[in-house]
Structures are given as structure tokens and as C-alpha cells.
Simulated assay, not measured.
Amino acid sequence: MTTALEVDFAPEAGQQVVHRRNWGAWLLSFACLAGVALILNAGISARIMDMERFLGYLFSEQVLIGARNALFLGTLALAIACGVGLVIALMRVSGNPVLAGIAATYVYFFRGTPMLIQLLFWFNAVPIMFDTITLAIPFTDIVLFQQPTTKVVTPFVAALIGLSLAEAGYMSEIIRAGIQAVDQGQRSAARAIGMTQGQVLHRVVIPQAGRIILPAAGNQYIMMLKSTSLASAIGYLELLRITTDIYSSNFLVVELLAVAAVWYLVMTAFATGIQSTLERLFPHR
């Protein structure tokens, strides 16, 4: 049965339906392609990069070590940040004004100061504040560990602490948003059948919040992998530091920076693949 609306808009015999073209989108596409072609042509004409030297350094042992160090540091820092961020997020939603205030202050401080300043602080200021790091059993003379702070707070340790604590400020807000996105009715139903607050969090809230925050957490992982380049400022041998040391001696600046960019793209592609796989395994709904 044909409705009156369909009859009014039905084309007559012999007529052809012509769809309106979005000329604005096409013009923008051509403009973008022309811009990319112009930049590539300028680079090729200026011969800013020696492709043979670029390919020679792309898989060199030193560069691969830097990429491995950056991947290890970024992954471990994000794992620690997720744990600390979860604690901070639970403090924010606990309802306790003291805990919520402490958590809010933590987020404000670590999100409000640049990561580079935090890394420099951990590497330079902490050894001045504390001469030694001692681990002992309370109320006894038994010392389990005692070392000068300069030996403990290495560039890797300082970078790991700085990146982890800074990223925890961002992850806590992501986790808090995921927790608050879980329907309040499910929590009430779980408490109605006798679940404790801890069981509600463990069995109802956190599993659902984890699915909700996956895209944002994947994005933070990508950001963290790139933020490992800040560790070059304190001497940690990650990707940017190694490429910088190489081109400071042979002056192949563009080639080495291009090598670093390629490996950062590889790492972000790896992180994107993990994110996509997890989102397929644990869909939001």
C-alpha cells in the first residue's frame, strides 16, 4: 500500500533522481591534498633528508633500545597510574569530605603542573631533601634496605614516578566519570539483595565502569607513550634522548627526528590495536 507522502515524492516515469553533491566537502578535500602535496614537494626539492641514512638508522641497535625503553616506561607508568587513579577516584566518590578533599587537591596539583617540572623535581629535588632512603622494621634495629638517594632515584625511577603520579590525576577523573556513569538503580538493587558496599563496587560498578572508560584509557595510553620523550630532559635513554645524542654528533637532525617519529607512530599503532581489541572484547553495551 502506497501512502500519500510516498505518492507526492515519487518520481514520474522517465525522471532520474539526482542527489545533491556536497561541494564544500570536496573543495576542502582537494585543498588538504594540495597542501600535503605542496609540503612534500618542498621537502623533496630542498632535499632535507637523506633517505639512505634515514633507513640506515631506522633499525639501528641504539634506536631500537630507545624505542623499547620508551614502550616499557610508558606501559609501566600507565599501569601504576591506573592503580593510583582508581584509589583517588574512589576517594572522590566516597562521600567522606576529608578523603574527597585530599583527592581533589591531588588532582588539582598534578593536573595543574607540567609533567616536565614534576620529572625535574623528582630527579633533582628529592636527593637534596633526603640523603638516604632507609627501610627498617619499626621499633627494632633491623635495617632491611639503606642506600643513598642518588643511587635509588635514577633517571628511570624519577621518570616513572613523575609520569605515573601525573597521569594518575587524569586517570582518576576518567575512572570517576565511569563510576558515576553506572546507573544508580543497579547499586540500589545490589544493596537490596544484601551486597556490601565493597561487593557492589567489585561486582557491579567497576566491571561496567571499566567498559565505559576503555576508549579514554586507550587515548591516555597513547598520550603516555609520547610523553616518555620528556624523560630525555633528565637523561633517561628513551627514544628521543638517543636520537638527539646521535644527531648532536653527526648533524643528521632531520633524518634522526624522522626515525624517532616513525617509531612513535609504530608505538601508537600498537596501543591503538590493543584499544580496538579490548573494545571488541568488552563492548560498552
Rank of each mutant, 00 (worst) to 15 (best):
Met1Asn: 11
Leu5Thr: 14
Val7Gln: 14
Glu12Phe: 13
Glu12Met: 08
Ala13Asn: 05
Val18Tyr: 07
Arg20Thr: 06
Gly24Tyr: 10
Ala25Gln: 02
Trp26Met: 01
Leu28Asn: 03
Ser29Gly: 09
Ala34Met: 13
Gly35Ala: 00
Leu40Asp: 05
Asn41Gln: 00
Asn41Lys: 01
Ile44Trp: 15
Ala46His: 03
Arg47Met: 07
Ile48His: 01
Met49Tyr: 06
Glu52Phe: 09
Phe59Ala: 13
Glu61Gln: 06
Gln62Leu: 09
Ile65Lys: 15
Ile65Glu: 14
Arg68Ala: 11
Ala70Trp: 01
Phe72Ala: 06
Thr75Phe: 12
Ala77Trp: 10
Ala79Gly: 08
Ala81Leu: 10
Cys82Tyr: 08
Cys82Asp: 15
Val84Asp: 15
Gly85Val: 07
Leu86Met: 04
Val87Ala: 10
Ile88Arg: 10
Leu90Trp: 04
Arg92Asn: 03
Gly95Thr: 09
Gly95Ala: 00
Gly95Tyr: 10
Leu99Cys: 10
Ala104Gly: 08
Ala104Gln: 15
Tyr106Lys: 07
Tyr108His: 12
Phe109Tyr: 00
Phe109His: 09
Arg111Glu: 00
Arg111Cys: 02
Thr113Arg: 09
Thr113Asn: 13
Gln118Lys: 13
Leu119Lys: 07
Phe121Trp: 13
Asn124Lys: 10
Asn124Tyr: 15
Ala125Val: 15
Ala125Trp: 12
Pro127Thr: 08
Asp131Tyr: 07
Asp131Trp: 05
Thr132Val: 11
Thr134Ile: 03
Leu135Gly: 11
Ala136Pro: 11
Ile137Asn: 14
Asp141Cys: 11
Ile142Glu: 09
Val143Gln: 09
Leu144Ala: 08
Gln147Ile: 13
Pro148Ser: 05
Thr149Asn: 01
Thr149Gln: 07
Lys151Asn: 15
Lys151Ile: 04
Val152Glu: 00
Thr154Gly: 04
Thr154Cys: 05
Ala158Gly: 05
Ile161Thr: 02
Gly162Ala: 12
Gly162Ile: 02
Leu163Asn: 03
Leu165Lys: 02
Ala166Pro: 07
Glu167Gln: 13
Glu167Met: 11
Tyr170Cys: 06
Ser172Thr: 11
Ile174Asp: 04
Ile179His: 00
Ile179Gly: 13
Ala181Phe: 01
Val182Ile: 05
Asp183Leu: 02
Gly185Val: 06
Ala189Lys: 15
Gly194Lys: 13
Gln197Ile: 04
Gly198Ala: 15
Val200Asp: 14
Leu201Gln: 13
His202Pro: 14
Arg203Ile: 15
Val204Ser: 13
Pro207Tyr: 05
Gln208Val: 01
Ala209His: 01
Gly210Gln: 07
Ala216Asn: 15
Gly218Gln: 05
Asn219Ser: 13
Tyr221Arg: 10
Ser227Gly: 11
Thr228Cys: 04
Leu230Trp: 09
Ser232Pro: 06
Ala233Trp: 00
Ile234Lys: 00
Ile234Glu: 02
Gly235Val: 07
Tyr236Met: 07
Leu237Trp: 14
Leu239Asn: 06
Leu240Thr: 04
Leu240Arg: 07
Ile246Asp: 04
Asn250Phe: 14
Asn250Gln: 14
Phe251Val: 01
Leu252Thr: 08
Leu256Phe: 14
Leu257Val: 11
Ala258Glu: 04
Ala258Leu: 12
Ala260Leu: 03
Ala261Arg: 02
Val262Ile: 12
Trp263Asp: 05
Trp263Ser: 12
Tyr264Leu: 12
Tyr264Asn: 05
Met267Tyr: 12
Met267Gln: 12
Gln275Cys: 09
Thr277Ser: 14
Leu281Gln: 06
Phe282Thr: 06
